[in-house]
Nucleic acid binder design. Structure first.
Lengths: 220, 220
DNA sequence: CAGGTTGTTTATCGAACGACCAACAAACCG
DNA sequence: CGGTTTGTTGGTCGTTCGATAAACAACCTG
């Protein structure tokens, strides 16, 4: 049942790449099936036959995005010898990605569907899961630094530090979206890395943080 | 021509507040006029008569948002005695706002319309302008710290530091949107403030940053 | 009250939405 | 070749989109 019947006249990988470009530019809800069919060069019925629903297509698009644009930051995290170098290289790789030519100046994972209509709640949570995995990946790299001996920090500190750098990564996308240049992002990264020494040397800053979060609910 | 004719049966301020709640939850494109009319308790034609178009309504909603939810962080920036205390208080006020009960756990200014269909480009740029003003406001506060004598930093450093803390503010919204608690945001703020000493004491970190931004365009 | 003015409702506009089906086209098997 | 299988096209489903026109209702002035 592989070579039977009429063969496909378009390349699914190419079509997926074209769908990626459009979803990247307009987000999930901002992209219509007509838009997709036109960009992919096929009829909308062919999209359903090959990829399933619009949501199914989007999930496949995100998988492709993760293995292409998402890979450099992940590789930086993995390949650098120390935790500090890994974080720094990941931030720089992220900045490279979100200011590259020919693609929108932001991370699709972060801005393709942060809010929207109620019926697309599952798509938003799908992306949120991937973002939470992102922080976990950072934390895992920090933990490796502890076992490698190049990083001294408590387990509670690792979660906080990983969340901090995940926050910076996500903030960078907004900055780039609003027109910040690669050089301007670099200054942000420099600032963010300036916290490293204080965060990873004794005494830990989190003895103070644990008593925090007490002043809430100012108004509504 | 003020009290002539049939008086309005709904309160525009109340209706605007209800529109705000809906736009906040679903974003600009995710909110339909039917949704708005239902939430505001009036027919869509009355929306057009009182507020203009959907985009006009959204701009009025954002003005209301700025004077309510946007005020605590701005006040913190203004009222604290030193630049450092002002930044710290602003971050905490932001964290309070985006984890408050009864409202979505993110900043509407940041996530209501980061991407979307081509025809809503002006709405996105309208929000981007407000976000860029946000960074300028932070930089102005840092400059005041210099004249007040509680902060020593170069003009180039002020832009970088303000952009850095604007990045953190914006990243916090993604974190809260993805379920981070107020306490978890506090640890991020603690990390972000840990950079302060290094950023504002000699030698400045930006002597290194100026030669940065040279490794770009890894792949595409 | 009459006449004028304004707000609200109801109904609807044309266009686009996501989704899908039936008919047609092109390859394979024997 | 005929028969089967699969991909693609064109059309259309009911719904919803933002926006508007006309009819009705409520208040003012005089």
């Amino acid at each position: 049942m592989a070579t039977r019947g009429r063969p496909r006249t378009f390349d699914p990988d190419t079509a997926l790449r074209q769908a990626l470009d459009l979803f990247w530019e307009r987000g999930y809800e901002g992209t219509s099936l007509n838009d997709l069919a036109q960009a992919m060069g096929i009829a909308s019925a062919s999209i359903y036959a090959c990829f399933g629903s619009k949501e199914d297509l989007f999930r496949q698009v995100m998988a492709l995005y993760g293995t292409t644009s998402g890979e450099p930051p992940r590789r930086a995290l993995r390949a650098e010898p120390t935790a500090r170098a890994a974080i720094h290289a990941m931030l720089r790789a992220t900045a490279d990605q979100i200011t590259g030519p020919g693609t929108p100046h932001y991370c699709m994972l972060i801005l393709a569907a942060p809010t929207g209509a109620v019926e697309n709640h599952e798509v938003r949570e799908f992306l949120a899961d991937l973002r939470r995995d992102m922080r976990t990946t950072i934390e895992d790299r920090l933990a490796r630094g502890v076992t490698d001996g190049d990083l001294a920090a408590s387990p509670a500190g690792l979660e906080a530090i990983s969340r901090y750098y995940a926050t910076v990564v996500q903030g960078l996308s907004i900055q780039a979206r609003d027109g910040a240049t690669r050089a301007e992002l670099e200054t942000v990264i420099t600032c963010a890395m300036a916290a490293w020494e204080a965060l990873t040397s004794e005494p830990e800053v989190f003895v103070a943080a644990r008593s925090g979060a007490r002043s809430r609910c100012r108004n509504g």
